[in-house]
Write a protein that binds this DNA or RNA. Sequence first.
DNA 1: ATGGTAGGTCTCCTA
Length: 262
Amino acid sequence: MAFTLATWNINSVRLREPIVRRLLEEEAPDILCLQECKSPVEKIPLDGFRALGYGHMIARGQKGYNGVAILSRLPLEDVGDKDFADLGHARHVAARLENGVIIHNFYVPAGGDIPDRDKNEKFGQKLDYLTGMRDWFHSDRPEKSILVGDLNIAPREDDVWSHKQLLKVVSHTPIEVEHMAETQDAGKWVDITRQDIPDGNLYSWWSYRARDWDAADKGRRLDHVWATPDISNAGHSSRILRAARGWEKPSDHAPVFATFDI
DNA sequence: ATGGTAGGTCTCCTA
């Protein structure tokens, strides 16, 4: 069996229903993980997705902020969620496929503007959230698992448009990259996107504030697909659908894809 | 060095 999975920070699933449907119609991933749905679960426009063959959804939501959802053509079982750093936010949900593979969908806190936990509480919460993830994966080592989502960190020099200019910008600071590496190590997670595309600049997010995001191309790779070592060799065909950043009323993130032969 | 855009909403907070 093979399945294709996509992860996309959608920045309001209700406002973005037309382009979610477009992605499902044109790209037809078996599973679509969404972040920043900004909607209670009961207000997610499921009917429109169900009509396209996506009859299964596992989600966590809240009014106005955060929110994660896993849409699927394949049956899913809800296997719970975590609230790292006790934020009370809907930032994680996990589901199990019939083949036993577990999918974790994460929306890691963005962390505010100032990369100093003494001056900016949100930055501390981001680091604490990552530490919570690390400790969980350390104590309960994941197996046959895929982790996707907006992790709000671009770890490599070629994951940002300018390593030097972003060293003090939240999302690419050394302390965040270190926290992310510890989280990744704790679960022995393999970065599937970089396993498939090891060289060259790779971005999944471009700010709304740029005059011309495409021409300026000041992107960052904030959205990730990881897998545990027991299934990492099954992952292939990774890609980022940059074109979706230019669709009508776009999200500021582009969807990231990977296929697994399991 | 600064300000730029977008979404949801208890018109300011978050990204």
